[in-house]
């Protein structure tokens, strides 16, 4: 079967190269790219590490949907349902023969470095902007009920692969928008009973670059390889802010 792969360095317009790869049951897109690199073209650039969907290295646009290459079965990308539209994502239609070839391109919303590798700097800049570390309270072992852990896990499962960031139409337009992963991380600290600055954190996202920038396209939750739901976190944070405002105005009156 064929892979149609976008090639080029940062400033180049993409050119596409076709590679023929063997169809082996169980093969993933990452396996296919490694096959190309090992046997046909060692100039092809792409990031990878764990091959088990835990390290977040291999995010790329596969059949125009952002996904992890290691978690995506090659055969499944020949099926028509592999081309689910991601709503509002500003990437062109067509350009490949679905069912005969798999289209592989770099993640959108981030600048390409080489071939399928993108510059993650803006993504990690947003991550760092939300102070992504627990602000400790005193005490050695904090007790925490398991249901709280379960709620936290919805967000701590994030592997920071930037697949959500690249699927978000707001990140595509607004350079300052923190984006789904950073906002999910921010929310994770707000609901962590061990954190000393939870209301400060809620306030940190209280702007159009934060909670209020989201338009609930929900692409983030749709493409997340780990089942994280940043849209849900954003909705909850907005609700907290509304309720806090109501509580304060009640106190005032």
């Amino acid at each position: 079967m064929k892979l149609k792969v976008a090639r080029g360095y940062s400033k180049d317009a993409s050119s596409y190269q076709i590679y023929e790869v063997p169809e082996k049951p169980g093969s993933t897109i990452l396996d296919a790219l490694l096959y190309v690199h090992d046997n046909q073209d060692d100039t092809l650039g792409f990031r990878y590490s764990c091959r088990g969907a835990v390290c977040g290295s291999c995010g790329m646009l596969i059949n125009r949907v952002p996904r992890l290459a290691c978690r995506t079965q090659l055969a499944s990308m020949l099926l028509p349902e592999s081309r689910h539209l991601v709503p509002s994502i500003s990437i062109p239609e067509g350009g490949f023969e679905l069912g005969r070839e798999v289209l592989i391109e770099p993640l959108p919303n981030l600048e390409r470095q080489k071939d399928l590798m993108v510059d993650m700097t803006p993504f990690f800049k947003a991550y760092k902007a939300i102070s992504p570390f627990l602000l400790e309270k005193e005490g050695s072992e904090h007790f925490m009920p398991q249901p709280t852990v379960r709620e936290l896990e919805r967000y701590t499962n994030c592997v920071l692969c930037a697949v959500c960031f690249s699927s978000c139409p707001i990140n595509g337009k607004e350079l300052d928008y923190l984006g789904p992963a950073a906002l999910a991380k921010l929310y994770r600290f707000i609901i962590d009973p061990r954190d000393a600055q939870r209301s400060m954190r809620l306030e940190k996202g209280n702007s159009t670059t934060g909670w209020w920038g989201c338009q609930f396209h929900a692409n983030c939750a749709y493409v997340c390889p780990k089942g994280v739901t940043p849209n849900y976190a954003i909705a909850k944070a907005r609700k907290m802010i509304r309720e806090r405002t109501v509580a304060i105005s009640k106190e005032d009156s």
């Binding site: 627990l134 400790e136 050695s140 904090h142 007790f143 925490m144 009920p145 398991q146 701590t156 061990r194």
Partner: peptide, 20 residues
């Protein structure tokens, strides 16, 4: 282990909220 817990690691818990 307790240091990592105090730094924010979300360990699984037992029925009494201790690290399982």
């Amino acid at each position: 282990v307790l240091e990592m817990e105090s730094w924010g690691t979300t360990f699984s818990r037992d029925d009494e909220g201790r690290i399982a």
